[in-house]
Nucleic acid binder design. Sequence first.
DNA 1: TAAATAAACGGAGGCACCTCCGCTTTTAGT
DNA 2: ACTAAAAGCGGAGGTGCCTCCGTTTATTTA
Lengths: 207, 207
Amino acid sequence: MAFEPPASVEPKPETAQKPLRADARRNRDRLVEVAASIFAERGIDASLEEIARQAGVGIGTLYRHFPTREHLVEVVYRREVEALCAAAGELAGKHASDVALEEWMRRFVDYIATKRGLSTSLRILLTTNSTLFSDTSGRVSQALRQLVEAAVADGTIRGDVDASDVLHALGGIYSAPDTPEWRDRSRRLVKLLMDGLRFGAGKSTSA
Amino acid sequence: MAFEPPASVEPKPETAQKPLRADARRNRDRLVEVAASIFAERGIDASLEEIARQAGVGIGTLYRHFPTREHLVEVVYRREVEALCAAAGELAGKHASDVALEEWMRRFVDYIATKRGLSTSLRILLTTNSTLFSDTSGRVSQALRQLVEAAVADGTIRGDVDASDVLHALGGIYSAPDTPEWRDRSRRLVKLLMDGLRFGAGKSTSA
DNA sequence: TAAATAAACGGAGGCACCTCCGCTTTTAGT
DNA sequence: ACTAAAAGCGGAGGTGCCTCCGTTTATTTA
């Protein structure tokens, strides 16, 4: 028996906002940075007053920039997804392409790990705010595609897979139950996956 | 990288609990009753302290019985579904069976109406606690089946429909947007539906 | 550079959450 | 009936949420 009012929280058409005043910009950035670290450490329900305090601003300032906890969480979340995706490019420039892919997946696991504890609130956010979901998952799969295609192109992984296969293979990471062994299990999954991907690479192993 | 105790809120296997002490039972009942009325009137985010106050107990007592807001909401919600379903039996004994069905659907609309405003938290509850969802929706369709079958049996509504058809027809009530006209529109839907159901009743109108 | 205006700051204050634990009431045992 | 133990009560108190608005600071204008 579920019904829904027009979830009015979300559909902000991204009003192009005029540049903030210098001090405002500074405070805002500071808040996001501190929030990221406090959320990571204490969980998503950490005290907002604590965040304001550590950022060296008043609570009023925090609320002016982020009218609700969800606003702040969303910004932090986007920023982290962005960092993860940006890492794809850097890794690609620094390692052989199969190694880059492997390392990126490892980071992906770590990233998910930090989110698991926070899941209740985060899941609500991702449910309520569908834009957030599609934005970020689109961004992630784009990053993955870049890595997979490079590795396929230079023959360090087999040619008969694409990014969505790999993403699908990583799917188990989300759904796996939240046990203490979760992280190890996920690491093993990544290794396993890489072994499979390297198997017969460069030899057109399409059997 | 903070992990969290395996969200232990939901899967309570309904431990058969020993009877409460007389005063405890009294307070608990009182709380549920007051909570129902306050939630209805002020919304699901009403102050728990207000509820305790009006129930004439201390806040500590409220929290002992209902460790979280969700626990309290769940109990209230179940109680209301139960009342709605119990009404099916009473109506069946008091009116012609088509009238009973119509009146029950009218109450169903009213019931949904009170829930619409509360939806955000309630949706979370129904998402998180899947048992609650299946329990209650099962119960509701059972009540409806009883009414529909009786009306079909004595020929006051047509014979070529069953409860799930009717439930399906009522489905629009959920999904309709939350406008001011919602209730009137829903009432009309019920009338319309009843007209359709009565059409050709008793005459094997299976054209 | 100085004044005027707009933008942003910050924290006090009011309310709600929830825990903790000393006190009271019920129940069971004799 | 009496009493000890178990069960339950309740509210003070510490913390967080969020709003409101007088004060401060950046920016624009002259």
